[in-house]
Design a protein around this nucleic acid. Structure first.
Lengths: 359, 359
DNA sequence: CTGAAAGCGCTTACAG
DNA sequence: CTGAAAGCGCTTACAG
């Protein structure tokens, strides 16, 4: 509206009542620093941002004031103003599971190396399905610059509405959505690798625990792959299907029976936890591994696994975490949408001692 | 300034150029919702906050608009405006360590149960000591409503300048600062408990690995306590002091020698990881536990520990995590400063099989 | 090289 | 019960 005279300001910085009490701790704001350094807020900001250049003189005064006042910039104000934050969100399945703990740790590291801040949340789905996605919404609320999803609780469809606003990379989980980048484990290869080892050991009748996809997509993939590859080599497979969410001991009893009847000489599990539960149960009923039955797991993350001797496969968490962050970072820096890719990494077989020749 | 006429506004909501392109995803703001619902921003805010009451009619319109537009409130703006955030910061030592992973998990849970948001950071101290405290500063920058500190990297003095601005509770670490609340493990009792078991098993000459306080205050406490209590019962103690940061295998060799010489019939370690390293090394040189030497650890967190059989003590992570969050929450709600307390919890002995009578 | 001002998206007295 | 306005603490064109 040209022609309309601007209203005169009553004082400097509007009519904000300037409190003369010196602020301290987290209460000191940029304005306090500016005053102490005898410059404007804009200048303080420039010094802190590092650009555009400020005269060395003023720079020093500002730094001095920052130091003396112990100024810590308010990241919320920064984010709001810049319309973006350095926050990267990680949606984790369960930090109690060492495989996820490891992932978290590595992601944490990779993210800080990129000068970003990681925030972690764990979506539950126990509680009233009402806000099953509360964790997701909270992260989006914070306007994270990127999102790393590693839990099956969050479905691809839940993310769809936001795919244009925030880059999403799913890590360590089976991802097939055409618009979500994925960096995960090659569960087919994992299953095949383990199956081939069991087959090579001479087993002709094997029990395989296969959780339903509803329980865990990854475990389902692994288990199915094991079964398929065993069958491909003409081996008799006893598929023990488990649809019991949160009950890793499901199906163990049945496998124990098969072992005792001699109907199976080996038992394959889709993760170490289940394998350990079986080992425990077997020991309890006097069955020896691999004496009476061979046992294999999958994950290979738990410290001390070598002392247990479990034959397993170590998933490549390091590579997945690192690559996941790398991809996300690329997306966060990218102007336009990049081509969506689904990358998979395979881990390495861990011999152990619970896989032996046919008893 | 009474008498000074207010400058007339040129349009609604200042002269903000109203973009007519419908925003989507995370781009939709409260104003868009307001327009869609035919109300003011203030009203939308009230509906969302839940207070003060808004007519049921309008409420519904607003909720409808929120739903249809997929509105996710910007938490940074909320925080800035409310001068506080729901964020709780957790400074973690190393998520790779199952004991910390467990703590993280439990804190995560407790925090969400309180309707708060957890953000986690891991301060390194490998890198140039320059921004050793970068993680702390980033959290303070986000103006977290409270801080949970569980790593020794952050010293009490580093926190001092902010103690007035943000409630701090240290969890699971030895804390003695008079102004910082502490909820931790009773390492003295832990050491005593284990020492008494070893003594009761009849050992008269025991090797104890004691890391220096610089390496780990907690482990130092445990180890010292073990040694002291053994000595109190007239037992000969071989203190193996380790000052090697990040090298948990330090001192193991020496203990192996003592075992072989028969100079020690039991070896006590300040955590399970070190005990497992010893177990591995012992096995490698043909020493059996407890046949040739008894072994105890401390932590009891690793899954599958029972399969290894390590005699240890399970630290009460659950109680510490829960109580830590509880205390923090109390502080966050409190108007004035509460009395500072240092609470300690002791765990439970885990018999295992690596502690036996004197060989 | 530096400052005054507008704007980021909310909340919350202040007035009806 | 509802709206207009100020303010939270920054950043960043816009003008010198």
């Amino acid at each position: 509206m040209p022609g309309l005279p601007k209203a005169p300001m009553t004082g400097q910085s509007r009519s904000r009542p300037v409190p003369e009490v010196p602020r301290e701790g987290l209460k000191v704001r940029m304005e306090d620093v500016a005053r102490a350094a005898n410059v404007s807020r804009a200048t303080v900001s420039r010094v802190l941002v590092g650009y555009p250049p400020v005269s060395p003189q003023t720079r020093e005064q500002v730094f001095k004031a920052v130091r003396e006042l112990g100024y810590v910039p308010n990241a919320m104000a920064q984010g709001l103003s810049k319309r973006k934050s350095d926050l990267v969100g990680l949606l984790l399945r369960d930090p109690r599971n060492p495989a996820y703990g490891q992932l978290h740790s590595l992601v944490q590291e990779a993210v800080s190396n990129h000068g970003l801040e990681l925030i972690t949340a764990v979506p539950h789905w126990q509680e009233g399905a009402e806000d099953e996605l509360a964790a997701l919404r909270r992260m989006l609320g914070l306007r994270v610059g990127g999102l790393l999803v590693s839990t099956g609780v969050i479905k691809a469809v839940d993310l769809e509405p936001f795919l244009d606003s925030v880059p999403v990379v799913s890590v360590g989980r089976v991802e097939e959505h055409p618009r979500i980048h994925g960096v995960s484990y090659d569960e087919d290869v994992h299953g095949a690798t383990l199956a081939n080892r069991v087959a090579s050991a001479g087993h002709r009748s094997v029990a395989v625990l296969v959780p339903s996809a509803r329980v865990s997509t990854a475990e389902n993939r692994r288990g199915s792959s094991m079964a398929v590859h065993l069958e491909g080599r003409g081996i008799t497979v006893h598929r023990i299907v488990s649809d019991a969410f949160g009950r890793p001991e499901a199906g163990i009893g049945r496998i124990l029976e098969l072992a005792r009847e001699g109907a199976a000489t080996a038992a394959m599990f889709p993760n170490d936890n289940r394998a350990m539960i079986f080992l425990r149960a077997a020991k309890a009923v006097g069955l020896d591994a691999p004496g009476d039955i061979s046992v294999t797991g999958c994950d290979g993350i738990i410290p001390g696994l070598d002392l247990i001797g479990l034959t397993t496969l170590r998933i490549p968490v390091e590579r997945v975490a690192q690559r996941g962050v790398e991809v996300l970072e690329g997306l966060m820096g990218a102007r336009a949408g990049t081509e969506v890719r689904h990358e998979k990494f395979a881990g390495e077989f861990v011999p152990g001692t619970t896989l032996g020749p046919v008893a």
